[in-house]
């Protein structure tokens, strides 16, 4: 379990981008991180991954402070897919192989190659193995970076807006896969999402962020019309459909 305790972070020591944030990422669970643009969701993921170093508070992973782990050790436990991935002139096979980086001693092993092969099959990317990243569609690219993250064989997976620019089918495919990972492989997942209905459908823990801090944290019952109005300034109606909540925006006229 990753335990985030009273985390505060700022870029310029003037105003806090994260203000006393606490939450947990548990194995077998999907945590949805929700909130407006600029509220600090990406920054939170980067702190967990030690790309940024929080000034206050602590992050432990299975009771070990992440600061005591080497970068390599951390990379074996936490995999991260950033909000924007660079589409470089790299072959898909090589890009996924890069996920083995924390395990490579001098050169790649047969096992490394097999892991990559399995992942390419799982993500239906075999036909693209010899294509270049800068020749892929958004959906294919997202699958490649997710496959690279899985090649790290992590216990925890951090995804920053993985459904951006994807068509509905791809959005569901990716999130279904991630949910399965959590349930079947005991991986702890945290996903930044903007689509509340997708979040409700595939996630079972929710972190609502407002003004750089936690507005609410818990299971699906914290997602209420009032909470959404507070966090997003959006008026919604929540209806039940086959045991899941469905969020429908009301006919409100907003002034831009």
């Amino acid at each position: 379990m990753i335990n985030i305790d009273s985390l505060s972070f700022s870029f310029d020591h003037a105003h806090l981008v994260l203000d006393n944030v606490s939450c947990r990422i548990e194995p077998q669970h999907c945590l949805a991180i929700l909130g407006n643009n600029g509220v600090g969701k990406s920054t939170l993921l980067k702190c967990i991954n030690r790309i940024y170093h929080a000034q206050q508070g602590s992050i432990t992973i299975n009771d070990t402070d992440i600061d005591t782990l080497s970068k390599k050790e951390l990379a074996k436990q936490i995999a991260y897919v950033p909000q924007n991935s660079l589409a470089t002139h790299t072959m898909v096979f090589d890009a996924v192989l890069l996920g083995r980086k924390p395990y490579i001693q001098w050169d790649i092993s047969k096992q490394d190659k097999n892991i990559v092969t399995d992942l390419l099959e799982k993500f239906a990317l075999t036909a693209y193995a010899s294509r270049y990243l800068n020749e892929l569609s958004g959906g294919e690219m997202q699958k490649v970076v997710l496959a690279r993250a899985m090649a790290q064989q992590p216990q925890f997976l951090l995804l920053d807006e993985p459904t951006n620019n994807l068509d509905p089918r791809n959005q569901h495919e990716i999130l279904q896969y991630v949910q399965e990972l959590a349930h079947k492989q005991q991986i702890g997942v945290a996903i930044v999402l903007h689509d509340l209905n997708l979040a409700l459908r595939y996630c079972d823990r929710f972190l609502l962020m407002k003004n750089s801090t936690v507005y609410a944290y818990g299971s699906a019952e914290i997602i209420t019309a009032a909470a959404i109005n507070e966090v997003y300034g959006l008026q919604v109606e929540i209806i039940e459909h086959r045991d899941t909540k469905l969020i429908v925006p009301c006919d409100t006229k907003y002034n831009i």
Partner: peptide, 11 residues
């Protein structure tokens, strides 16, 4: 080459 953030997360 795959970006600073990705490189960091790869250790």
């Amino acid at each position: 080459r795959s970006g600073i953030d990705t490189a960091q997360s790869l250790g």
